[in-house]
Design a protein around this nucleic acid. Sequence first.
DNA 1: CAATTAGTTTAGACAAATCTAAAAAAAATA
DNA 2: TATTTTTTTTAGATTTGTCTAAACTAATTG
Lengths: 217, 217
Amino acid sequence: MQSFTEENYLKIIYHLSLNTESAVQTNAIAEKIQTKAASVTDMIKKLAEKQLVDYKKYQGVKLTESGKNAAINIVRRHRLWEVFLVEKLNFKWDEVHDIAEELEHIKSPELIERLDEFLAFPKNDPHGDPIPDKNGKLDNTVFIKLTKLKAGDKGLIMGVSEHSSLFLQHLEKTGLTLGKQIKITDITDFDGSVELSIENKQINVSREVAKHILIKL
Amino acid sequence: MQSFTEENYLKIIYHLSLNTESAVQTNAIAEKIQTKAASVTDMIKKLAEKQLVDYKKYQGVKLTESGKNAAINIVRRHRLWEVFLVEKLNFKWDEVHDIAEELEHIKSPELIERLDEFLAFPKNDPHGDPIPDKNGKLDNTVFIKLTKLKAGDKGLIMGVSEHSSLFLQHLEKTGLTLGKQIKITDITDFDGSVELSIENKQINVSREVAKHILIKL
DNA sequence: CAATTAGTTTAGACAAATCTAAAAAAAATA
DNA sequence: TATTTTTTTTAGATTTGTCTAAACTAATTG
């Protein structure tokens, strides 16, 4: 069983691994975990001893099979709690991350299985991210970035790839929430911003925002 | 804000204070918290510095006003989570203590207020213990121990004063669960055991068990 | 390819919470 | 009250996770 801190490292390494095939760098971890590179090196050595990561000096880390399992489990707990917070306690999707960050470390497999059942086995969290099943299996449907669509395309908003409160609040205000149908009316060549219609309204979405919105055609 | 460990000490001191007017002893805390007296002394000093307890060497501790507030808050969180686990996730009343012990340390006042609302502002936890309201006010209705009743008395089972799984499972098996109506048929002089009828059945409850069952006449 | 810069590791220290062993104080008892 | 026993505290060490400063390695660039 891992400590609270070890779990945080595993989770961060897992998330950083998703963007790359290569090993995750010490500094990248340090930045995410809000600590110093020296501390990361110490922890990495510990995780390596426990066979949770593969590590060669100066080469960064990769999760081992068992490290990955542990990480996916944490992700599962985090996302289930987020669903609970939004669906049952009426939190907004931009308010749940920090609380779920604490709840995800509660150690009780039974608790999580029952929570999953109570929530009717949700497939995605409030931001559209897939929830691993109890065997760690992840729905690997990949959605398309809004920036990849062309004028005339129709689609459904399925998720986001940026989870900051600020970003989510902006989407909320603009009406760009999960499940909504959109139709691209135009792509502005000049700045790459997207003109689209949603619920009979015409809005303009900047490229910066659009690239973090995930669509199913 | 207190650390996880500090919160545990405050909670234990609070519970030990309920049985006595006088200060709580170092050894008593050590036993409850599964640690050594030396460690308790260290922590007590720390809590005293933070003005959460009054402490004089060799004299034991008492919670200050602010220490008591903090403790009651923890108790509130613990009991609300227990209600959630039993009512929503279908845990049995003897299974929830350890999980609630972890959940009670999640720091988010908003979370607890919403959980309270979601649970419809319960007054008591699954063992009959009162849940402090958000201002820390506790329903101070005191129930009567089953051992205090006389033959012919009728009452309702309102709570228990012993929370071990073993005890609760025994009650469950015997049918002595919260809300049930009982009628005392006889008190056995020899061993102080209680003969009572519950749901048209006659059962015998040992004095040791009876003294931990709380009744409203 | 030598020098600079960026990234990483080591060494040594620190804070929190714990421990053991020994000393000190308080309480119980003869 | 003197002695024994119980309880509590102190002193010094340990573990976990962190830090700073300095040293080292790798990557970049002139």
